[in-house]
């Protein structure tokens, strides 16, 4: 019957889809972490750097945010190859997604840093802390906490948008589904299954991040819920 046929199909496709899911996870985790490190650097450079450093950071952030992710991936994968810089699909995707996410994370963090009252920095400097110590022990720990909701959105965004990597031949979840569907033409079923997998893990990720948010919560440190400057997911 229809349902048993569906489950048979599901079981047959599952191993390949799980292979793809692993690649999706790899892309997501590397991009969120590398994007975080680069993003923190960009945000600090933009706020505290001299004119030149700040200008470079702003330029990078604006170029990334002003161009589509797909175009960025094409440039890295096809464009750079034409000048002799050859990346494998997965390398190009890891690189592109990390850079892309770093620009967004930098902007979320910048918003948070600028929301910290200036008196916090003044009080730290008054104790005799250097500027770097004040940023590291007073400003950043607060800014990172209030960035958690934005960061959680970014993680979920990334998890779903890694699917774009399929267009540069990365065999992540969506690509594996596409391959299966092109063999047996059962597009509706396979895409429903894929959508369900994304949905389940999106839910799990939100739950984990919510717990992290509670774990790091400090009374009185405002956590703006779902601020309007988040990118749409």
């Amino acid at each position: 019957m229809a349902t048993s046929m569906f489950f048979e199909f599901l079981l047959d496709s599952l191993p390949k889809l799980l292979d793809g899911l692993q690649v999706t996870f790899l892309l997501t985790i590397v991009a969120i972490l590398a994007g975080f490190l680069i993003g923190v650097t960009l945000a600090l450079g933009r706020i505290y750097g001299n004119k030149i450093i700040s200008g470079i950071c702003i330029g990078f952030i604006e170029v990334i945010r002003g161009t589509p992710l797909l175009v960025q991936l094409f440039i890295i994968y096809f464009g750079l190859a034409s000048i002799g810089l050859v990346f494998s699909p997965i390398q190009a995707a890891l690189f592109g997604l990390s850079l892309n996410s770093s620009a967004y994370q930098a902007e979320y963090l910048r918003g948070s840093i600028q929301a910290i009252p200036s008196g916090q920095m003044v009080a730290a400097r008054t104790l005799g802390m250097t500027k770097i110590q004040s940023i590291g022990t007073i400003v950043l720990p607060q800014a990172l906490r209030i960035s958690i909701p934005a960061w959680s959105n970014e993680l979920i965004y990334l998890f779903k948008y890694t699917s774009i990597a399929y267009l540069i031949q990365v065999r992540e979840l969506t690509a594996e589904g596409q391959i299966i569907a092109s063999r047996n033409f059962r597009y509706v079923e396979i895409y429903l299954i894929i959508a369900l997998i994304y949905l389940i893990f999106t839910f799990i990720i939100s739950e984990i991040v919510d717990r992290a948010e509670k774990r790091f919560h400090v009374p009185g440190l405002g956590v703006p819920k779902r601020a309007s400057w988040l990118r749409n997911t």
Binding site: P117, A123, G128, T137, I138
Partner: peptide, 30 residues
């Protein structure tokens, strides 16, 4: 600046730290 304490009108306590850590952080870091 370690030798010149400053007490502010609007307190400027470090919002992410407990009272104890507010007092100990300068001792540790500076």
């Amino acid at each position: 600046r370690q030798k010149i304490g400053f007490v502010f009108q609007d307190f400027n306590l470090f919002n992410h730290l407990t009272a104890l850590r507010n007092v100990s952080i300068g001792l540790e870091k500076v």
